[in-house]
Simulated assay, not measured.
Amino acid sequence: MRKTALMPYAHLPRAHHDRHVLTSTVDNFGAAHWLLGDHAPQPGGEVPPVDALVVSVHPGGSVELTELSAVRARWPHLNRLPDGGFVVAASRARRYEDFDQVQVFDALGSETSSFSVGDAIEHLLVDEAGQLWVGHFDENPAGIRRWSATGLPTWKSDDAHIPGLFDCYALNVTGAAAWACPYTDFPLVEIRPDRTDRPVRVWENRVRGARAVAVHGGRVAFYGGYGEEQDRLVHGELTETSVEQTDIGLLTPPEGSVAGRRRVVGRGSRIYVQAEPFTEWGVFDLSS
């Protein structure tokens, strides 16, 4: 089976390795961000607001630090807004936790607004216009939704006729578009809400369990799978109605196969991958 090595992309500066990585992501413009806290979150009970540090590594290697005041999410998602601010969202919206799930911070790290988008967030990705794309896992039937940075819903998958959308396994947001590969049928879905002609396109797909997807022209790549297939990389080509597989291999860290969990982000032709302890990002680019 052919192996493809991830290319090193960005790493958390060693000066910050004494902090706990709460979450990490790569934004629409290619900057990598780490949300750091003093301690790992503890399960159960109420979550006291804590101050957190965002370490941003931009393409080219420059580093930017932003202190966020009073972050409330125990298991957070992080993304950056085009104006330099940040969005932090709690993955779970518990009935006993009396606070808005999403916090919006300005470029100086002060909270400017908050709102809720629903329980069970699997993905939170911001597009080039500052719209928030949220993909839910199966404990919330909302599927996929898009929100403004002020908390107004701007698109929802309810009437999009996406087959078998019970869990948004993979979500890729690039420019103003989104691509998804949801459980249980795992179709490849292109979503362009602002396009009047066919805002949603669906391709039948036989790849099961992918956690990330990359698209470039008429080509597509699926990364991840069940059990021992967590590093599987499947290439395919788009026909009018389906994805035709062309190759199956492995996508491995630069130093070779390693054990542990993965964190993935899909952005256009790129799939960014982190392995524990989540201090480094590697990248696979389908356009290369």
Rank of each mutant, 00 (worst) to 15 (best):
L78Q: 09
D98N: 14
S116W: 09
H77T: 11
A90F: 00
P59G: 02
L78Y: 02
R92M: 11
V55K: 01
R92A: 10
A89W: 10
F86N: 07
P82W: 11
L53T: 12
S113M: 14
E97M: 10
V57N: 06
V87Q: 12
V55H: 08
V57G: 13
E111L: 03
L124E: 00
S110M: 11
S56M: 14
Q101K: 07
F115M: 06
R80S: 15
H77R: 13
S114F: 00
R94G: 08
R74M: 10
Y96C: 07
L81C: 13
R74C: 11
Q103M: 11
A70M: 02
I121Q: 05
H77G: 06
A120N: 12
L78K: 00
G84F: 06
T66C: 13
R94Y: 07
Q103P: 06
E64T: 14
V55T: 09
V87H: 13
V104C: 04
L65C: 12
F99Q: 07
P59Q: 12
D100E: 15
V55Q: 11
P59T: 03
Y96M: 04
R92P: 00
S110Y: 15
L53F: 04
S116K: 11
E97K: 14
V55G: 03
V71D: 04
A120F: 03
D106W: 03
V87I: 15
W75H: 05
R72D: 05
E97W: 14
A93M: 13
